[in-house]
Design a protein around this nucleic acid. Structure first.
Lengths: 208, 208
DNA sequence: ACCTGAACACCGTTCAAGT
DNA sequence: ACCTGAACACCGTTCAAGT
C-alpha cells in the first residue's frame, strides 16, 4: 500500500477513510502510520499534528459539498427540496459533519445552499431581516435535525421503554396517539413534515 | 478535600463538576483521583470504569430535569413556553446534554415535557398519529436547535467572512437582507421565531 | 526535502497485595 | 469492604539523527 513516496494527499485520503468508516476516535496517528506503512513521525512532517489533520479533513468535506439545485414549482416546495437534499448530503458523512460542527464551520457548509434559499425566500415575497430569519430558521432546522439523527444513529440504540411512556388523560382518551408515540419515529416522514410546516409559516408571513 | 472516606456519590459529584466546567475530555481518571486525593484505582472500585462513570453522570442529568409547566393561554403559546423552558434547561448543561445525546437517551430527557406537549396538542384538536408527529416535531426542533447552539458555543468562534457571503441578484436588490445575513444570528430571537412558526403550522392542521 | 527510532509525558485499566 | 502501587498497553508529540 506504500509503493511510491508518501504524500500529504495520501495521508489525508487514508485519514478520511478511517474517519468515515469508524469515526474520529478511531483515527490514531500510530494506526494511520501503520495503515500507510510508514513511521508515525513521517505523518507529522506532512500534516503537522492530529488536530490540523482533522482540520484539513473538515476543510475537504466543506469543499466537497457543492451547490444544490432546488426542484419544484412553488417557493415552499423548492425550499423543502433544498432542505431534503442538504439532509441527504450531510447524512452520507455523519462523522465529518459532527466535526465540521465542532469547529464552528457549519455556516460555511451552508453557504451554497444559502444562496438558493435566499432566492426562494425573495420570490416568495420576504424582504430584509424577515427573509434572513426565514433562511436561517431553515438552516438551523436542517442541521439540528441531522445532528439529532446522527447521534441517534451512532448511539448503541435508544433503550426503548425502560421507562415506558406513562398513561395520561390525553393518551387514555386517544389510543391511536399512544400507539404512535410508542413506535419509534420515522425520521424521513418527520423531517419532511416538520420542514413543510416550518416553511409554510415562514412564507405565509411574506404574504401579509 | 478528602477528610472522610471516599464514597461513590463523592466521585460522581467531582466528575460532574469537571464535566460541567471543562467538558467530558477534561475528565481523566487520574485527574479525578488527584482532585479527590485518592489513588486512581479507588475510583475504579466505586464506579467500575470511565465509561460507566459517564453513564452514571448522564443518568443523573436525566433525572435532574424534571417536569415543565406550560404558561400562556392558547395551546400554541403554551407549547412554545415549554420549548423555551426546555431549551433553557438544556442550555445550562451543554456538555451533559451532548453526552445524553451520544448515548441515545434523548427521548428519556424529553418524557416529562412530552406529557405536557401531548396535552396541549390534544386540546388544540390534534388526534392520533398527527398529534404524535406534532409532538415529535417540537421535540426534534428543540434538541436540534440546542445542539447547533452548543457546538457553536463550544467552538473557538465561527470564523466570520473568511469566505464572505457572495453578492447575488437577490442580495443586491435587498441590502437590508444582505446586512442581516452578514450579522451573526441572534439565537434567542431565532429560536422563538422558528418555534412559533413551526407550532403555528402544526396546530393549524388540527383545525381542518 | 523527507524519513527514521528513541524518548517523554500522558492516558485507561488490571492485578496482586495490603488493611 | 475498601484502598494501594506497580505494571501493561496504548496514546500524541518532540527531537536529534539519518539520507
Amino acid at each position: 500500500m506504500s509503493r511510491t513516496v508518501l504524500t500529504r494527499e495520501q495521508v489525508l485520503e487514508a485519514a478520511d477513510d478511517l474517519v468515515r468508516q469508524h469515526g474520529p476516535d478511531a483515527l490514531t496517528m500510530r494506526g494511520l502510520a501503520a495503515r500507510l506503512g510508514t513511521a508515525v513521525t513521517s505523518i507529522y512532517w506532512h500534516v503537522g499534528n492530529r488536530e490540523s489533520l482533522l482540520d484539513a479533513l473538515v476543510e475537504r468535506t466543506v469543499e466537497e459539498m457543492g451547490a444544490i439545485q432546488p426542484t419544484g414549482r412553488t417557493p415552499a416546495t423548492r425550499i423543502v427540496s433544498v432542505a431534503r437534499r442538504l439532509r441527504g448530503e450531510l447524512h452520507a458523512r455523519p462523522h465529518l459533519i459532527a466535526m465540521v460542527h465542532e469547529r464552528g464551520l457549519t455556516e460555511r457548509v451552508f453557504l451554497p445552499a444559502q444562496r438558493a434559499l435566499v432566492r426562494e425566500a425573495h420570490t416568495a415575497g420576504l424582504r430584509g431581516a424577515r427573509a434572513a430569519e426565514a433562511v436561517r430558521a431553515v438552516q438551523f432546522q436542517v442541521v439540528g435535525f441531522v445532528l439529532v439523527e446522527c447521534a441517534r444513529g451512532l448511539a448503541p440504540a435508544e433503550t426503548p421503554g425502560r421507562e415506558r411512556p406513562r398513561k395520561t388523560a390525553s393518551t387514555r382518551k386517544d389510543p391511536a396517539l399512544a400507539r404512535a408515540l410508542a413506535r419509534p419515529a420515522d425520521p424521513d416522514r418527520l423531517f419532511t413534515a416538520s420542514m413543510r410546516a416550518l416553511v409554510k409559516s415562514l412564507l405565509a408571513q411574506g404574504g401579509t
